[in-house]
C-alpha cells in the first residue's frame, strides 16, 4: 500500500511536496467536481421517474422499485424482499398495506396471502432508465417544434453573420477609403451597446417591420456582430496585399478576389467565428423571449423556461429537455473547445 502511495506521489527530480502542490491539486480536483458535477447530476437525474426524483436521500443512478405482474391482478405489484422467521429470504409482491402490516403474496404461488410487518420487508431495487422523459416531450409537447426553431435560428444567424461580417471585414482591411477608421470606430463603439440597453426601441422597430412573432425577428438584430467584424478584420490584415494586386493584374473582379482568394485564406478565423456564433445564438434567451409570444415559435431556451416556470413543475421532463438543450454545446466543448479557448486568449473577446 505504502509502495503504491510512494509511486503515485513520486515527483520528477525527486523534489518533495510543498503545500502549494497540495493546494494546486485540491483546487484542480475540486474544480473538476464543481464544474462537471452539476451537469453530471443533471444527466443522472434526467433518467429518473417522477417517483425516483421525489426520493430523499437521492441516488446518482435511477433506481426504481421492481414490479411484477401476478396472476389474477390487473396492475403490476411492487416486489419486496422479506426475511421470514426461518431466516430464509423470499421475494414477495405486496397487495396492500394496512397500518404496519403488509399483505403480500408469492408471485409463484399467488393463492396464499402472507401478512408481514412492514419493518421486515425491503423493496427490491433495480436500475431503470426512464427514457420516456426524453420521448414524451418530443411526442406530446411542442419540444420538437422548439428544437426545429432553435436549429433554424442558429444556422441562419450563423450563415448570415459569416457572410456579412466577412464582407465588411474585407472592405475594412483591403480598401483605402475616406471614413474607414470612422466606420471601424463606430463598429467597435457598439460593443458598449448591449441588447439590454436598446430593448424598447428595437422591439418597436421589429414590430414596425412586421417581424414580431417571427423567427427572422430573432435572427436579424443579432447578426451584425462587432466581435465578428473585428476578429475577421484582424485576420485579413495578415493576408499580403501583393496577392490581391496579382489577382487584379489577372483581371479578377473584386468579388472574385473576396470570394476565391480572401475567404479561403480566412478559413481559420471564420471557423472560430462560426463556433462562437453557433454557441451565442443557440444560447440566446432575452431577445427571443421578447420577440416570440406564440408558443409554436419558441426556441428551446424560451420553451424550456416557460415549462420550468409553471406552477407545477414537471421536473422529469424539464431535466431531460435541459440535457437536450445542453447537448450541442457539450459537443462543441468536447470537439472544438481548443478553438474557442485560443480564440478568447488571443482576442479577449467573447
Amino acid at each position: 500500500m505504502s509502495r503504491v502511495a510512494e509511486f503515485l506521489l513520486r515527483r520528477r527530480g525527486g523534489a518533495s511536496w510543498h503545500w502549494t502542490d497540495i493546494f494546486t491539486w485540491a483546487w484542480l480536483i475540486g474544480g473538476v467536481i464543481m464544474m462537471f458535477g452539476p451537469a453530471i447530476w443533471l444527466v443522472g437525474s434526467s433518467f429518473k421517474s417522477p417517483a425516483a426524483l421525489a426520493e430523499f436521500p437521492p441516488t446518482i443512478l435511477p433506481y426504481v422499485t421492481a414490479e411484477a405482474m401476478v396472476e389474477g391482478h390487473d396492475k403490476p405489484l411492487p416486489l419486496y424482499r422479506v426475511t421470514g422467521e426461518d431466516g430464509e429470504t423470499r421475494v414477495l409482491a405486496q397487495l396492500r398495506r394496512v397500518g404496519i402490516v403488509a399483505q403480500m403474496i408469492d408471485p409463484q404461488a399467488p393463492g396464499e396471502i402472507v401478512k408481514v410487518n412492514i419493518a421486515e420487508r425491503t423493496p427490491v431495487r433495480e436500475i431503470s432508465f426512464a427514457t420516456e422523459n426524453y420521448t414524451e416531450p418530443f411526442l406530446h409537447f411542442d419540444f420538437l417544434l422548439y428544437l426545429r426553431n432553435s436549429v433554424f435560428v442558429t444556422l441562419m444567424a450563423t450563415l448570415i453573420t459569416l457572410v456579412t461580417n466577412s464582407m465588411a471585414a474585407f472592405a475594412l482591411s483591403k480598401y483605402q477609403f475616406r471614413g474607414r477608421s470612422f466606420v471601424m470606430l463606430l463598429i467597435l463603439a457598439t460593443l458598449m451597446v448591449p441588447l439590454s440597453v436598446i430593448l424598447v426601441p428595437l422591439y418597436s422597430i421589429i414590430s414596425a417591420m412586421g417581424l414580431f412573432n417571427s423567427l427572422w425577428g430573432v435572427i436579424l438584430p443579432t447578426v451584425a456582430t462587432p466581435t465578428g467584424v473585428f476578429l475577421l478584420r484582424q485576420y485579413m490584415l495578415t493576408i499580403p496585399d501583393e496577392l490581391i494586386d496579382a489577382a487584379r493584374m489577372d483581371r479578377a473582379s473584386e468579388w472574385q478576389i473576396y470570394w476565391r482568394i480572401v475567404l479561403p485564406l480566412t478559413a481559420p478565423a471564420l471557423a472560430v467565428l462560426a463556433i462562437f456564433s453557433v454557441v451565442w445564438r443557440w444560447n440566446d434567451f432575452l431577445w427571443p423571449l421578447i420577440v416570440l409570444s406564440r408558443k409554436e415559435l419558441y426556441t428551446l431556451q424560451v420553451g424550456l423556461n416557460t415549462y420550468a416556470g409553471e406552477l407545477n413543475v414537471q421536473w422529469h421532463y424539464i431535466l431531460a429537455m435541459t440535457v437536450v438543450t445542453m447537448l450541442p454545446v457539450v459537443l462543441v466543448f468536447v470537439f472544438l473547445q481548443r478553438f474557442i479557448t485560443t480564440g478568447i486568449a488571443g482576442t479577449g473577446l467573447k
Binding site: T325, T341, K350
Partner: peptide
C-alpha cells in the same frame, strides 16, 4: 483549462435550471 471553461459555454437557461 478546459475543465474550468466548460460552464462558460452553457446557456443561461441551462445554468439556471441545473
Amino acid at each position: 483549462r478546459a475543465v474550468f471553461f466548460f460552464p462558460v459555454l452553457l446557456s443561461p437557461v441551462v445554468v439556471g435550471l441545473i
